[in-house]
Design a protein around this nucleic acid. Structure first.
Lengths: 154, 154
DNA sequence: CCAACATAGTTGATGTGTCACCTATTCCGG
DNA sequence: CCGGAATAGGTGACACATCAACTATGTTGG
């Protein structure tokens, strides 16, 4: 399955399917989410993390790790979200360098009203077609891939 | 597998794995490609299409469809690539509105020297871990998903 | 022939992501 | 304690992506 420098026909086919789905799916989800709620997919991801966190607040680095984002990206995105009133930054008493990000009322309201529709949409697009068998195999395969892809330190 | 508005635990797990891989993988590939060749992943995709095309030239819309990109995105990206000398635009005799995009010498050189390493990297990251069984199931599942995701007209 | 409409492609504004670099604090060995 | 290394986070520049609007050419029905 892995000899020579090239992708064989079968591999190419799978790879192109992967590319098509992994770029097309977020595009669709993002468009729908944006239209219905004014949130982008990244907005949504941030809000999910915060809403699951203790006291609806997290340290920036913790958030970045949970999302698999770089610090820089995280910081930029938080700035934009703060401008729209979805989150706010707060000082960290323990560590003078650090900062907390917390969900605002608007932020909580936004995620709670957006989540059900989004979940349904994900299910319709992604899960509807999968057989139980495919489901399991995908999970196994993706877990392995996740291991290879993890160390996104920067 | 698809009742209620929410994702159950198993679905959530699979979905998060999917997200992690489908965002982490291109990030890694892009970084490596960029460092070794100065090409971005989108650059690479455009160059692959052109290099496979008759006479190394395509109509803009055809290219956009082949890539699954919007016209606008395509146009913007071609502008950037033209600025760097990787492609060039040419008038279309048949249709005064239209335009061809063609590979330049530099573009051909770039894709030919970048492709083998990139292919190997894709293989190392994506294919190495997959068993034959997983490979087949992924292909089947992704084909179905591709169908749902296809109509990206805009 | 021409008016209405459709199509090919571009543009500008703005949101998103990455890289390189910077500041301010904290940590740690001597 | 103090000086250097590590860490938390932010900034600016620029590439990438999306949306809405626009220009110009082609197509079609009356």
């Amino acid at each position: 399955m892995t000899e020579g420098p090239w992708l064989d026909e079968e591999q190419q086919r799978l790879w192109r399917s992967w590319l098509a789905v992994s770029s097309g799916l977020p595009t669709l989800l993002n468009r729908e989410l944006q239209q219905k709620t004014g949130l982008s997919l990244p907005d949504f991801d941030v809000l999910v993390q915060l809403s699951e966190a203790q006291d609806s607040r997290m340290r920036v680095t913790t958030l970045a790790q949970a999302l698999g984002w770089e610090k820089s990206r995280t910081s930029h995105h938080l700035t934009r979200m703060a401008r729209r009133g979805l989150i706010q930054r707060a000082e960290c008493a323990d560590d003078g360098r650090g900062a907390f990000v917390e969900l605002t009322q608007d932020g909580r309201q936004a995620i709670e009203s957006a989540a059900p529709d989004h979940a349904r949409h994900v299910r319709d697009l992604f899960f509807t077609d999968l057989t139980v068998d495919e489901f399991d195999v995908m999970q196994r395969a993706l877990s392995k891939l996740q291991g290879r892809v993890r160390p996104p330190a920067a």
